[in-house]
């Protein structure tokens, strides 16, 4: 069997398959279906300093080959995550990555320093790109200076490896990637959701209570793949690719485009067994193609 281990942001992963923030909760439901230790890692739901109620409903609108969501970061707050969720996840032999989000620069610093001392966290993933929070959210991820400022602030406030998660809702993704790399990111993950909209023509009203929401699922895959490929040529830190991955062959596309690891998001809704099946599928493909080590094909796309 091929070697699937990779190293991202200084964290050794047994395989490159992680689950994406907001699509896997804290793993409890999926732990009823399979051993979470089969995964390279788990990225938990976006966590904020204080509990967040989230947006009004409807929060979900299905669209061709995907969905829009405007959950608005509903989460129980960092203290509850530390007390109840991290101890649960620590039981599994997998990298636990805490996704963090904030209203302002200070929030990011505070939550990073709070998590710094907590046992069992492999890394932080910093959401500078959530489109659902009215007070800033995406604005953080769309300005290179602000993105760099948040990265530096998290860096100063904790010694954990940090992965900066980028928004695709920008004209120049490379510029943002370079800015956060320069500011101290240990790795970059992308993409978060693409800002979108759906309308109920009978009611002449947007379907989502929040009017707009984030698009995810197979519909976004070509955009995500293009962005991973673009920044892979520009930055030196490892890249975690995601956006529309449904199968092992989708995952391999991202790896060949330059991602050292991938995340499975909305696919968890379509197929709750996607995680272990994609690990298995990558194994099979590597064996069939005589590849001994997955690292041989990271960025291997020919042009």
């Amino acid at each position: 069997m091929a070697d699937l281990s990779v190293c991202v942001a200084g964290v050794d992963l047994k395989n490159p398959v992680l689950t994406a923030s907001g699509t896997f909760g804290y793993g409890r439901e999926f732990a009823e279906l399979y051993d979470l230790s089969l995964l390279g890692g788990i990225v938990v739901k976006g966590t904020t300093l204080e509990p967040r109620l989230g947006n009004e409903t409807p929060r979900i609108a299905e669209t061709p080959c995907g969905l829009l969501n405007s959950v608005g970061l509903q989460n129980p707050g960092v203290e509850k995550v530390i007390a109840e969720e991290i101890p649960f996840l620590r039981q599994f032999d997998t990298a636990v990555i805490i996704n963090i989000a904030g209203h302002c620069l200070e929030d990011y610093g505070k939550i990073a320093s709070r998590l710094d001392k907590v046992e069992g966290i492999a890394a932080l993933e910093v959401n500078i790109s959530c489109p659902n929070v009215k007070s800033g959210g995406m604005a953080f991820g769309t300005d290179p200076k602000v993105a760099a400022g948040i990265t530096a602030c998290v860096r100063q406030n904790c010694s954990l490896p940090i992965i900066i998660k980028l928004s695709p809702n920008v004209t120049n993704i490379v510029e943002i990637a370079l800015a956060v790399e320069e500011a101290g990111a240990d790795a970059i993950s992308l993409i978060n959701t693409l800002l979108g909209m759906a309308i109920d023509i009978e009611k002449k009203k947007p379907i989502l209570a929040n009017t707009v929401g984030g698009l995810s699922g197979p519909a976004v895959k070509p955009v995500a793949l293009r962005m991973v490929w673009q920044i892979a040529k520009a930055v030196h830190v490892p890249i975690v690719g995601l956006g529309g991955i449904l199968t092992a062959s989708d995952a391999l596309e991202f790896i060949m485009a330059g991602a050292s690891a991938i995340q499975i998001g909305s696919a968890n809704f379509f197929n709750p067994m996607a995680g272990p099946q994609i690990v298995e599928g990558i194994h099979e493909w590597l064996d069939q193609h005589g590849v001994k080590d997955i690292k041989e094909i990271i960025g291997a796309v020919n042009q």
């Binding site: 907001g22 409903t57 979900i60």
Partner: peptide, 15 residues
Amino acid sequence: ERMGCGIGTCMGCVC
């Protein structure tokens, strides 16, 4: 409610 995952993880179908 409109549901995403239907298994309790996505916080889509809340009331």
